[in-house]
Nucleic acid binder design. Sequence first.
DNA 1: GTCTATACTCAGATAGAC
DNA 2: GTCTATCTGAGTATAGAC
Lengths: 214, 214
Amino acid sequence: MPDVPLQPPAKHAIDDGMNVHSASPSTTPTVRERVIAAAIELFARDGYFQTSLPDIQQQAGVSIGAIYRNFASKDELAATVYDLVLDAIGELFRVNLDGRDDFLERFRGLLSDLFRLTEERPELIEYALYVKHREISQEIGPVCSSEPFVYLQARVADAMRRKQLRSGDVVVTTATLMGPPLRLIQLSLDGLLRPPLAGTVDTLIDNARRALAP
Amino acid sequence: MPDVPLQPPAKHAIDDGMNVHSASPSTTPTVRERVIAAAIELFARDGYFQTSLPDIQQQAGVSIGAIYRNFASKDELAATVYDLVLDAIGELFRVNLDGRDDFLERFRGLLSDLFRLTEERPELIEYALYVKHREISQEIGPVCSSEPFVYLQARVADAMRRKQLRSGDVVVTTATLMGPPLRLIQLSLDGLLRPPLAGTVDTLIDNARRALAP
DNA sequence: GTCTATACTCAGATAGAC
DNA sequence: GTCTATCTGAGTATAGAC
């Protein structure tokens, strides 16, 4: 995956959100874009500390000097990538969860998108969810407190107010919603899940509804 | 995986279970034991790659030479620690899930123990669940395929046969059971969960029962 | 067996040619 | 702006005294 735009798969906005190409729609990717794409892939596959700048240099097909012209340090590169990926995920959350109709139906849409993204761009999800960003930089807070998850909690609280979800502790309810799909994503990334993730959405939503509907 | 056992003394194997001090109940810990204890703490807190042998040396109060007399390499130390920790967790699973009475009541016991362990020995849980062991050594498989989780899936399948759980995909059902508590553990380790984990057990089991009971 | 001092490797980062 | 060559420091691992 050299030049890695997030091609517009559908109505959803992953594309722009994650479009690593700043403003060049289908031109040859810039050095910066190539470096970012390589970093996502290698950081997710081998981990941050086991990915050296020479590795990135080779994968991106640029020189060390060019990398340092675009990023002050390896850390800053990682932070940039983190922000980009989290923005993309955040967009997915917002596109799906906005609205007032039945919360669990909106949530179903989110799961479908997350699962699709896991299968199309596993390195992206791997990077967002399972790279230990705190090890890289203490500046970065834990994923759980990142914008998408905070947003999700707000929507859960809102759904409770609207009696679309049983009242209860927001944190526990959110964990009950996201825990199972995240676990399946992890299994899928580890290659331990045979069938496609998409096939589990109905069951997950059914379970969530029994557990959490008022 | 030589000495440093975690004997299962009482019915709950934790306290002494993870007693790094091997067969010597209250003797001065050996070098090996001190190194292992330091490694668990530092690997979990700072990550494997950001923990140097001088760090471990200092924390354990031993010399580099002594470390290398007990472990062939930093990798081997990590692998040893991993096995020990996973054995302890596995014991927790077995102690709680053995038996034939209502599965979800047995599962409740497991959650209580896991949560207690998370609060008493967070570095242990952190190390078992969230250190990316595959980055350290490709020899080590993903946590999800580790002995405790495989065992859990077997018990879930068994509970389905006994009509204690609704029939369905074993992997999805297991994810539905473990996903929420694991997520709460993650939040707790990140310091984002105010109340004690133990207080969530009842809700988690209630949710699981509604979702998964026949 | 445990220690200290040291060798070796390779990472991240920089300088200066083009 | 991009490259190659090089510096510097950290970290793993070893050698050899005690």
